[in-house]
Simulated assay, not measured.
Amino acid sequence: MLLRPARTLAAATMLLGLPALANETVRISGWGGSEVAIVNGLLTDVLAEKLAKEGITVKYEPVDGEFSQFIINGLSAGTAPDLFYVDIFWARSVFSAGQALPVTQDVSGFAANLVGAFTYEGKLYAIPKDFNTLAVHFNKDIFDDAGVAYPSDGDTWKTLQEKLVAVHEALPEVDGLCLVPEYARFGAFALSTGWTPFDSRGRTMLDQRFRRAFEFYTGLVKSGAAVLAADAGQSWAGGCLASERAAIAIEGAWIISALRDSAPNMNLGTVRMPKDPESGKRGISSLRSAGPSTRPPRSARLLQRSPSS
């Protein structure tokens, strides 16, 4: 995911209205990307005066590489930012280790299921930022050049895979999809089979439905339909689509603004996720992130003294 200006704006505005603390510097970190200059502009031009009145200096540190690893390593070493974004797929490991402070702000205006995603043992540790739905975004010109039909809402796993293989065979320099080996993308396929992550006793379920989805997803590379994003020199599927290395990308709506900056002339199409050919269903493919979380002890002086209004 790419950093959106609203994310850092939300993080920074949490600091407003706090008791003035002399020479207090707060480090904020989020995903990097093409909008870093815009985010810096928000902090410098929009919020600077208000933050100065509170005696707070914000240091923004975008991360272009593996963000979760950066945060986890920083927490272990004691060098993590004071405010940072977390994703539901790894947030609990941070919360359960006591590496984040509970949120004290009023969150009654947020949807309960989003708040619940970042609640651990009855305490909320992060404020929901957004949620989104995965979709298949594709470059129409690549499919036209390859003479292959566009992806459609009626595609199944099999028919989409066949289209991607056909594109690669017609245009060897283009891969069908840049694959990212993570649950955030694979999970949509597994859930569409009817698989549930846990049984009634809370144990992980790796049943035949999960295995079938896993074999399909990991088999995309072997079939010629995909390449690993890292092997294409990219950290996410959107980078492959923007550079025309891949014909499609499975991403949320955040890819739109990224492509507007990096590939403004792309003839872009978007369709829903493909259906599982056996169940006929699509996965529950929402991604939810949150921010910010905080690490003790220094940031505790800020957030624990924050008014709850």
Rank of each mutant, 00 (worst) to 15 (best):
P62V: 04
A126H: 04
I255R: 02
V115P: 04
A37P: 01
L259W: 10
D261T: 14
M1A: 13
L268A: 09
R4W: 13
Q304S: 12
P62Y: 10
P274S: 04
P19L: 08
R209T: 06
V148D: 01
N267M: 02
R92T: 14
K281D: 06
W157E: 08
D106A: 06
L134V: 02
A6M: 08
N139L: 05
S93N: 09
S285Q: 12
Y125V: 02
I250S: 01
A237K: 02
P62I: 05
A126D: 04
A230F: 13
V136Y: 01
F186Q: 09
F84D: 02
P128A: 06
R288A: 12
F118S: 09
L43M: 05
G176P: 07
A52D: 05
S308P: 00
F131T: 08
W195G: 03
K281E: 13
R212F: 06
S76Y: 10
L228F: 15
S299I: 15
P181C: 05
V136P: 12
N265V: 01
Y120L: 05
A300K: 07
A184Q: 11
L134Y: 09
A11D: 02
F214Y: 14
I256M: 13
V115R: 11
P102R: 10
N40G: 07
M14L: 15
E244W: 02
R211H: 13
K281Y: 04
V115L: 14
C240V: 09
A226H: 06
C178P: 00
E35P: 01
A117V: 07
T104L: 07
N73R: 09
M205E: 10
A184M: 12
V136R: 07
E278G: 05
A52S: 06
F186H: 05
A253R: 07
D199W: 09
Y125K: 06
G33R: 06
S262K: 15
